[in-house]
Every structure is written in C-alpha cells, then in structure tokens.
C-alpha cells in the first residue's frame, strides 16, 4: 500500500501543507532569488542546511558559474501625446540606457512581420511590440527576440507587451537574448494595458514619444551551486531517478510560483519517502537547479558533469510549470516506457490524477531527454500561472497549500515507484 500511504501522509495526514509552509518560510525570509544575487546565495545556504536537518543523504553543493545581471533603477514616461508614467520591467541581460536616458518617438507594431514591412519607419525609434498573447511558447519569442529584431532595423530601444494571459497593469520580466553582429539596445516589458493603449493612439495618428531610463548592468559571472540531496538506493545505488525544480527566480515578487513550488514539492517527495521509512532500490536524487531563468545554466553544467553516467538515469523529473491542482504527468519516452508510466499513474486514482500526457519537458531536464533519458514534468491547472509569472505578483498569496499537497503526492508516488521497480524504464 505504498502509494496510498504516500497519498495519505501528504494530503490528509501529519505532513499535509508542509511543502507550502516550508516554501513560505524560505521566500518570506529571503525574497526573490536572481542569478548572481546575495539572495540566491543565501537561499542555497538555507536549503543546504534544511536538507541536512531533514535527514536526507549525500547532501552537497555542486559548483556552477552563473551570470550576474542587475536591473538597477528604471523608468519610462510617455511625453506625447500626454504625460503618462509607465510601469516597466527591464528584461534579463538587457543593457542600460546611456546616462540621461533615451527620448524617442515610438513605432507600434503587432508582429515581427509588421516590423519588417515598416522597417523604413523604424530608424531612431523605440519599437513597441503589441503582439497578441497566443500562448506562452509562441508569444515569448517577442520577449526573447524583440530587441534583436528592432535593432536590425535601426531602433534605439524596444518595449514589449508583457507575456501574460491576463493583466492588472503588471509588467512581466524574463530573459532576452542579443545576437552577435547586431547592436545591443535596451529592452523592457511594458503592461498589456500600455501596449494596447499605444496601439490605439498610433492607429488614430497620434505621435507618441517616450523617455526611457534603464540602469541595467551585466557583471562578471559568479559562483553558485546546484543543491543536491538523496535517498540512496538499496540495491542499485548508482542508478538514479532525478526529481527537480529550480531555486533561482527573477528579482520581482517572491519566486514562490516560479519555481519555489516546483522545488519544494520535489524536496517534499523525498521527505515523504523518508518519513514513511521507505528506501527505493535505486537512488532518488533531488536537484535544486541554479540559474534556470538565465537559460538552464546550472542544469547545463550538471549535465556536462554527469552525462558519463547517462545509462544510469532511469527517469528525470522537473516541476516548473506551477504546482496548482495536477491533472497528470507529461512524459517523453519510448512506447514501452509510456505504457509503464500509465500503470504507475493508475496508482494515483485516489487523487483522480491518472493521465499521462505527451511532451515531458523542462529547461533543466531537456538535456537528458534529448539524449534519450525518459523525462516527466508535472501537468497542472495552468489557468492562473501566466497571470503571475515573472511579475511582482509571484508571491505566496497565489499558492494553495492543498493543491501543493496533491502535487507533492503525485510527484512522490511517481518518483518512488519508478525508483523502486525491479528494472529501469526502457528506452527507445
């Protein structure tokens, strides 16, 4: 009755709400945990102690070099057609403006195609992207590529409608990328409301002028750590089921949703197994990644360090898409492995979370999945996720302890059973 015991302990028993309470203590104490920040360093130290005090095994830190970018002071004011102070968030890796800022006329476009069509109008202007939200994967391209595409046509800065499915005047930050050979221009996200307003103004023929100041700076890379803890396997200790989330966040809100929840249900999975006195046949390894938000930096270096043992990884798991009410598991692997995962998920019938979806993925586990290791990610109710993602609204207030309990139970049952089965998951 292992699955039932895990579910009972996590959802109804003594340790219900534990992952929520543990997370609240960390994020209320430390706050957001930007790559390269003192906050992230402090969070890693606290987690190292927490995992040791929890009685987990082989608790250690694995060194990683990570980027260090800081946004500094930033502001944007519309000067024409009326004075309007705008909420902005500079995008990760953006350069700052020159001292005194940039004052320029705006060109509003709804897409990269429109930018190309109107390239002759773009020189010397601030490009405002008012792209519609058509899902995260597609829309995020404007955040990541917006500055490069604007710079290619001679713009001096870019302001991008936040990648958010809902807005109450909230800017949402995130990483952006420059391209070799293309001038670097300052870039920030603005609110959905302001982007849409400027689009309306432009369509009426209004001239729009914005003054933008950004103090963003990139500093030399710095040392950080992936945080690792284990329950060592009883029969095949060299074989691994990896359970993970990332400990870093952006520098706004509390990083509770992204990805405090994922990191803490992953810790909870090991805690539940340990508290029930269980020891799977192969090792359950918890990894709390560093610098995921900068492009999976910690995970990339972990992969380089450990890929020689790739044949020993039965399953890699990451929770980085919220810990709201789970609907199932996303899974990538061979047909045989998928059939096995369906049987494993049947153990979660008491929670009515039995579905196995396609496309197990995560920035931090994709290295392994692409190399043929079966991968799983938590599938949950994403309705509210992009309301808060990368914004000041990413706080404990949006987290739900009962939903985290269910997520932790799902995570623990899957991790334990796959780690304890007689054989590793079959590969293609």
């Amino acid at each position: 009755d292992v699955a039932k015991a895990i579910i009972n302990l996590a959802v109804y028993g003594k340790y219900q709400n534990r992952s929520y309470e543990r997370l609240g203590l960390l994020v209320d104490t430390v706050g957001p945990r930007l790559s390269g920040s003192k906050n992230l360093e402090k969070a890693i130290q606290i987690m190292y102690q927490n995992l040791q005090q929890d009685g987990l095994e082989n608790v250690h830190l694995e060194q990683v070099r990570i980027p260090h970018w800081e946004r500094g002071e930033e502001s944007a004011v519309m000067l024409e057609p009326r004075i309007h102070k705008m909420a902005i968030l500079g995008l990760g890796s953006s350069i700052g403006t020159p001292p005194g800022g940039i004052t320029a006329e705006v060109l509003v476009v709804a897409s990269f195609d429109e930018l190309q069509r109107r390239a002759s109008e773009a020189r010397g202007k601030i490009i405002v992207y008012n792209q519609p939200y058509t899902g995260y994967e597609k829309t995020v391209q404007y955040r990541v590529q917006g500055a490069v595409e604007a710079a290619k046509v001679g713009a001096v800065a870019s302001l991008i409608q936040s990648v958010a499915s809902f807005s109450i005047y909230s800017p949402h930050t995130g990483i952006q990328k420059y391209q070799d050979g293309v001038p670097k221009i300052p870039t920030a996200c603005i609110t959905v409301e302001d982007a849409e307003m400027m689009s309306r103004m432009a369509s009426r023929g209004n001239k729009i002028v914005i003054h933008l100041e950004m103090g963003a700076k990139t500093y030399p890379d710095t040392d950080s750590f992936n945080t690792v803890a284990e329950i060592t396997g009883s029969m095949y200790p060299e074989e691994v089921v990896l359970v993970s989330g990332h400990l870093d966040s952006w520098d706004v809100g509390q990083g509770a949703l992204d990805d405090g929840g994922g990191a803490f249900i992953s810790w909870e999975a090991l805690s539940l197994v340990k508290d029930l006195g269980l020891r799977p046949k192969r090792t359950l390894r918890l990894v709390l990644w560093t610098a995921e938000e900068q492009g999976g930096i910690g995970a990339s270096q972990y992969y380089e360090l450990h890929k020689a043992n790739i044949s020993k990884y039965s399953l890699v798991m990451e929770a980085d898409s919220g810990t709201f009410l789970p609907t199932g598991l996303q899974f990538t692997g061979s047909d045989k492995a998928r059939a096995i995962m369906k049987e494993v998920m049947n153990l979660l019938q008491p929670l009515n979370v039995t579905k196995v979806f396609s496309n197990g993925e995560g920035t931090d586990i994709n290295f392994w999945i692409q190399a043929g290791v079966p991968g799983a990610s938590l599938r949950d109710d994403l309705y509210k996720y992009f309301f808060f993602h990368h914004s000041h609204g990413d706080t404990m207030t949006v987290m739900d302890p009962k939903q985290m309990n269910v997520a932790a139970a799902v995570w623990a049952v899957v991790a334990y059973v796959v780690a304890d089965m007689d054989e590793m998951l079959p590969r293609s």
């Binding site: 049947n346 089965m421 007689d422 079959p426």
Partner: peptide, 24 residues
C-alpha cells in the same frame, strides 16, 4: 541487474503491470 546487458527487459508487460499494481 536492473537492466539486462542488451538493454532489453526479458519480462512481459503483464509482469511489470502486476509489479506496479503491488504499490497501490
């Protein structure tokens, strides 16, 4: 050993299914 040398399990899916059901 957890995985046979050729990487192919000799067990039937029915056996694996029964094993998993034991965790219920």
């Amino acid at each position: 050993k957890a995985v046979f040398k050729n990487g192919v399990s000799q067990r039937t899916f029915r056996e694996i299914k029964e094993e998993i059901a034991n965790y219920e």
